[in-house]
Every structure is written in C-alpha cells, then in structure tokens.
Computed example of a mutant assay.
Amino acid sequence: MTTTAPTTPLPAPEDVRRVACVGAGVIGGGWVAHFLARGYDVTAWDPAPDVAQKLRRLVDAAWPALTLLGLAGGASPDRLTVTATLEQAVGEAEFVQESAPEKLDLKRDLLARIDAAAPPGVVIASSTSGYPMTDMQTTAADPSRLVVGHPFNPPYLIPLVEVVGGERTDAAAVAWASRFYEVAGKSVITMDREVPGFIANRLQEALWREALHMVANGEATVRDIDASITEGPGLRWAVMGPMLTFALAGGEGGMAHMLDHFGPSLKSPWTRLQAPELDRELYEAVVAGCDEAADGRSIADLVAERDRGVIDVLRATGRLDATSDPKGDPR
C-alpha cells in the first residue's frame, strides 16, 4: 500500500449517516440489515428484478436478532431505499459496501463503476471472501480509496470484519475504513499485508478440507463432524482462539511446554490439507448428510436457531451486555 493521503479529505467515520450497499445476496443483505440496525440510512442496489422484496424479507428475518443485540437510536427498516440504478445508490453515499458474487471480472467492473459514481473521497469496501484488492482495483480511476472489508456470514450477527488494502490503496483509506467499522459496531482486524483468503477464511478452509476428506473416506458423518466442534473445541474457541487454547494445554509451562510435548505429533498424518476431489459421490454425501442433520428443520428454522445461539454465546462470554437497554444507542 502507498502511504500518501487521498486528494479529497475523508468525512469523519463518526459523521457518516448514509451507507450504500451494492449487491443484495446473503452477504449484501446481511450488511443492509446491520447498517439499518445501527441507525444509518441505507441505499441499496442489485440487478435482480425482485431485489426490493428479497431485501425486505431478509431484513424482517434478521430484525428479531438485531433487536436482541440492541438497536441504535432511530434504527428502522424503513430507512432502507432500494434504487433503480447503481448510480442512484452510491451518488450521495458516505461509505459504500460492495457484495457482488465472487467473480473477478465482475468485481473489477463493478468497483470501477462505483468509483466513477460515488462522491470523491468516499471509501469503497469490497466484501470479497478471497480476492486481493490489488487484483480488483486495476480498472478504477481512483484505486486509492478501494479497500477490502471482509465480513462473516451473517454480517448482522458475526462481529468480525477483516480490513486490508491493495498495492494502490492509500493507507489513510484503510485506517478510515477500520475506524468506520468500529463505529458501526464491528470487531476489526486491520491486516498490514494482503494474504490470499485473509486470516479467518484460511483457518476455516483447513477445517473444511479435512471434513470433506472424512466424509469422502467414510471416517465420519456430517452430524459427527459438526458435533465434534460444537460440543468440543468450538466451546473453547468462543472464549479464546486456537493459539491460546493450545497454550493452556501446556499447563503452567504454557505454549512452550505444549510445543515440547505435542510438537512431534505435527509429523503424524492427522490432516490432509490438499482438498479431496469433489466428485458427484462426495457432493451428494455432503448434501444428504446436511439434510439428515437438519432433521426436518427448514433453512429459516436453522437461521433463527443459529442467531439465538450466537447471541447467547456473546452474552455468556461478556461480549454483549445482557442488561443493556435494547432501545439504547450502541454507538
């Protein structure tokens, strides 16, 4: 990243009142719900013909969980405006969140269009789950204001967002985006360099690949794999991450003792990080296993169950004030 400041002064993150969301899928819609719950005016655009109805359904489904989390003063689903064009959505925005499908050419073209239509100085963030901003900002007239703001599904519920710029991104834009997300109620990791897949996705991908190997080889069912995390290490990871969790495995000696004791097992054939061939048999086994694990619950049922569970964990671990007034302004 460069260290030069943008030519146009950025508005203070605390002063932002209007956010534009481009893309209204699961991630984009989740961002819409999050920003509405934080009291922002939100303009949204997506080329799908039924985008307004789709967004309303998504926001309505998320609102009970957002109410439990605590709504900002003035927060309302009625502060959403779905526009007919991208230019209308971003023309008066003070921050833009792009959440288009993961296709590099599409991302490049869309970010260039947003850059051309958004007011000068406004930071534009991409929700990409893997592309480096360096590869996406190549056709924008002002790449200095383009950053990655990588959320986790659903963005209205999971606090984390990873922020990083590309080779042509100004450091000031990255710092501004990180501060804005914090003001908007997110937990932010500001990365100082581009890493393919960022941080959390790299860790998720390793677990996902091993899970696929186990299903492919008949070593575990989908239900077994999920239970092994939700009833095992996932409970610890909700409090502290894998590194500190392993440090505790070393007792009073900490990580040093843990590495001395368990380090040799790193050479044991416990994991196979290369992805298995996703043939039709494995594909159908994974899909059928998920259907079995759902046990008749619809996707809407599972979403509601997930939302309640995450909120309970956030409260139980002190990351959400269980006594807070849900009508108060968390900003």
Results as ranks from 00 to 15, higher is better:
Arg202His: 06
Met214Thr: 01
Ser187Ala: 15
Asp226Ala: 11
Met191Ala: 15
Ala220Lys: 02
Arg193Thr: 13
Glu210Asn: 02
Arg179Asn: 12
Ala220His: 01
Phe198Ser: 05
Val195Ile: 15
Arg209Pro: 00
Ala220Trp: 04
Arg209Asp: 03
Arg202Ala: 09
Glu194Cys: 04
Glu210Arg: 02
Asp192Ser: 14
Asp224Met: 13
Lys186Asn: 06
Ile225Ser: 00
Phe198Gln: 08
Ile199Thr: 10
Arg179Ala: 13
Arg179Tyr: 14
Lys186Ser: 07
Glu219His: 10
Ile225Cys: 02
Ile225Asp: 00
Asp192Asn: 14
Val183His: 09
Gly185Ile: 04
Ala220Leu: 06
Met191His: 14
Glu205Cys: 15
Ala227Gln: 10
Arg209Ala: 03
Glu219Thr: 12
Glu205Leu: 15
Glu182Ser: 09
Met191Cys: 13
Ala184Cys: 11
Ala227Glu: 11
Ala200Cys: 10
Phe198Trp: 00
Ser187Asn: 13
Pro196Val: 08
Ser187Trp: 15
Ala206Asp: 05
Glu194Asn: 06
Val188Lys: 07
Ala227Met: 11
Val222Lys: 08
Val215Gly: 11
Pro196Ile: 04
Ala206Arg: 08
Asp192Cys: 13
Ala206Val: 12
Asp226Pro: 00
Ser187Gln: 14
Asp224Ser: 12
Ala211Ile: 04
Tyr181Asp: 04
Met191Asp: 05
Arg193Val: 04
Glu219Asp: 13
Phe198His: 08
Leu203Met: 11
Val183Asn: 01
Arg223Met: 04
Thr190Glu: 14
Val183Thr: 04
Ala184His: 05
Phe198Cys: 07
Ala200Arg: 05
Ala220Asn: 01
Trp208Lys: 03
Arg202Ser: 06
Val222Gly: 06
Asp192Arg: 14
Phe198Leu: 09
Ala211Asn: 05
Trp208Ser: 01
His213Gln: 10
Asp226Glu: 14
Lys186Val: 01
Val195Arg: 04
Phe198Asp: 03
Glu194Arg: 08
Arg202Asn: 07
Leu207Met: 14
Pro196Met: 08
His213Tyr: 11
Glu182Cys: 04
Gly185Trp: 01
Ala206Thr: 09
Gly185Met: 07
Thr190Ala: 15
Glu219Met: 13
Arg223Trp: 00
Asn217Gly: 13
Asp226Phe: 00
Leu207Asp: 00
Asp224Thr: 14
Ser187Arg: 15
Gln204Asn: 08
Ile229Ser: 07
Tyr181Met: 14
His213Glu: 08
Phe180Ala: 02
Val195Gly: 01
Leu203Asp: 09
Met191Thr: 10
Gly218Thr: 03
Leu203Gln: 07
Ile229Gln: 09
Arg209Gln: 06
Val222Asn: 08
Ile189Cys: 08
Ile199Gly: 00
Ala200Leu: 12
Ala216Arg: 08
Ser187Thr: 15
Ile229Cys: 08
Met214Tyr: 06
Thr221Phe: 09
Ala206Gln: 04
Thr190Gly: 11
Glu182Val: 12
Gln204Arg: 09
Gln204Val: 13
Ala227His: 10
Ala184Asp: 09
Val188Asp: 05
Ala220Arg: 01
Leu203Asn: 06
Tyr181Pro: 01
Glu210Asp: 10
Ser187Pro: 02
Ile229His: 03
Asp224Pro: 02
Ala220Gly: 03
Ala216Pro: 00
Val222Pro: 05
His213Arg: 09
Arg202Val: 12
Val222His: 12
Gly218Tyr: 02
Ala200Gln: 07
Glu194His: 05
Ala227Arg: 09
Gly197Cys: 10
Glu194Val: 10
